[in-house]
Nucleic acid binder design. Structure first.
Lengths: 330, 330
DNA sequence: GTGAAAGCGCTAACAG
DNA sequence: CTGTTAGCGCTTTCAC
């Protein structure tokens, strides 16, 4: 059942059917009604390969995720979806598992015109390649823009967030503050570490690289971080973690050590995922406006979809520090 | 840059280029080499809309997920990916958010030939519609087959898993065993509840529906379940949860109540996600062979991709009960 | 307001 | 082994 069959049944030309499908106003109302009725009756769906071939677009966008093992992305995806739907785009999600070959394979979908654009949440490609990519295809980065790349992006102010938290700790009398960071998401890690460092220095405290433990983002990386930090001569009394998973690992290790988290020592996470309020102690965290991040990311992409020569925008959205039992802040 | 341009540069016909692209053996080695060189040099990529239009297939499969907010799926996806790659298929993931309209929208991709087949992890559609769908398109269900639908599927033996666990509890002296189940994933819930019930009855214990609390799968549903269970005259001394998230909610609520989980009361979860070994107490759970589930799901789909008339298979994979601190089993 | 016809890029018969 | 050609299903000029 294709457009030709429908034309035959309707007794019109295929052009008319096509016009009806595409809401072309110059079709007689009577004709339109008849055609619409037949389409409905037959359950005809325009073949997209034909349409794509002709129009050179797919009305699909690709969302590229580094991993699925992170609660964090699900709400963002809903934000993207809400805007994409309005604009008539379908979403395809692909997972790179942090592997450059996989990433390239999926990015290839842009070149092959399988998708019209892409929102990426992490790239292993260097910034020159990202700049190049963004020049040629509608492409935006969310949460983790490549440092130095000329590309549209949306993020929260990672540096300021940690700066704020660190300042709060200091105001509350903490002199030795540790950080458990990562060694993968270069952008956010760099910003957050910078916020930490600046807060210390501005408050006249020493910055010591040993107080920043870096690893991956698994629970055990959090617990490893704690082990290293607690071995320091001046063990920290507060620990800032760059993700909730690290905070969980850190807290469970501290509990093993017999510490009462929230009293003996404060710990804060990042992302404010739902586990934070069900762990014990409940975990303080820095919330990102996930739905809005998704919506803004799509808006940026939409600009590019209309005209890929449009200038690149860098959008910064607000964060929110949420204190729970794991931090003792007045 | 299309196949015609390449043909011109190579001084051959488009047919030869097409043959080279598609590894047709009847091309002279010298010709092949020349063409390959030019393709590489120019960075030519065959246009997939053209190819899809012509071949009536897309070499893409759709993976339909109810939600992304679940660690459980990430490893399964890797299993699917590994097999799909071998077979030359790309994977697209879509999330329905448990909404039938969304589900239909994505399933539409089958009709529109955007994808050649689909692996679905949850369907709100009734089983007649699923049967119909599977008759017309390569379609398989993983983990949550529609009850009564004629469709290929792969699952673990949900009933036996819970039956085993429940039996163990009974052998260890537990007389009042509670269950926190869900009210959404009909298939697995029904099986697991049946396993629970049978174990009780076979051991001469009373089955009482009040001991099964049903809700959704959020942490708070676990804690709500516990609240209800602990109000019963004969409060349970062991609780079986149908997911790790429910177990987490349950345990944190029990801790609030002053109970020592693993001593005063045993709790077990399902899926063996990584949080289980980082919670305190560490959480016992039932492990599903997630990677294998993914691989088998793709194998089933592959059969259908080759010939959609091939008979529907129901595959059952083994589970594994993992005891940690939250259960006290000798 | 409608139709005829070209052509998007590719593959697969068929002929040689 | 290679080329010619038809046509996949659709949109879009260009006529009328």
């Amino acid at each position: 059942m294709n457009i030709k069959d429908i034309a035959k049944i309707c007794g019109t030309s295929v052009a008319t059917i096509s016009r009806v499908i595409n809401n072309d106003p110059k079709v007689a109302d009577s004709t339109r009604k008849k055609v619409l009725a037949i389409i409905k009756e037959t359950g005809f769906v325009p073949n997209s390969a034909g349409r794509n071939l002709r129009t050179q677009k797919s009305n699909k966008i690709l969302v590229l995720l580094p991993t699925m093992a992170n609660q964090f992305y699900s709400r963002i995806l809903q934000g993207i979806e809400s805007k994409a739907e309005e604009a008539g785009y379908n979403i395809l999600v692909a997972v790179t598992n942090l592997d450059e070959a996989q990433e390239l394979k999926y990015l290839e979908m842009l070149r092959m015109k399988h998708v019209d654009g892409c929102i990426s949440f992490f790239n292993t490609l260097n910034s020159e390649k990202i700049t190049e990519l963004a020049k040629n295809y509608p492409f935006v980065q969310c949460c983790e823009p490549s440092i130095g790349a000329d590309v549209s992006s949306v993020v929260v102010d990672n540096k300021q967030a940690i700066y704020d938290v660190c300042n709060e700790f200091i105001k509350n009398g903490h002199k030795n503050i540790g950080m458990i960071s990562g060694d993968y998401y270069k952008f956010s890690e760099e910003k957050r570490e910078k916020g930490y460092k600046e807060a210390l220095i501005e408050n006249g405290l020493d910055f010591n690289q040993d107080y920043i433990q870096k690893g991956f983002y698994r629970y055990k990386d959090g617990s490893n971080g704690v082990k290293a930090l607690m071995k320091l001569k001046e063990a920290p009394t507060a620990i800032i973690c760059v993700s909730d998973s690290l905070a969980i690992g850190a807290i469970s290790e501290l509990k093993n050590m017999g510490k009462t988290v929230g009293k003996d020592i404060s710990v804060i996470g990042f992302d404010n995922t739902s586990i934070t309020s069900h762990f014990s102690p409940t975990i303080s965290s820095i919330a990102q406006p996930r739905y809005d991040l998704g919506q803004e990311a799509f808006n940026l992409l939409h600009d590019k979809l209309q005209n890929n020569e449009s200038s690149n925008k860098k959008i910064i959205l607000p964060y929110r520090v949420v204190h729970r039992e794991s931090t003792n802040i007045k």
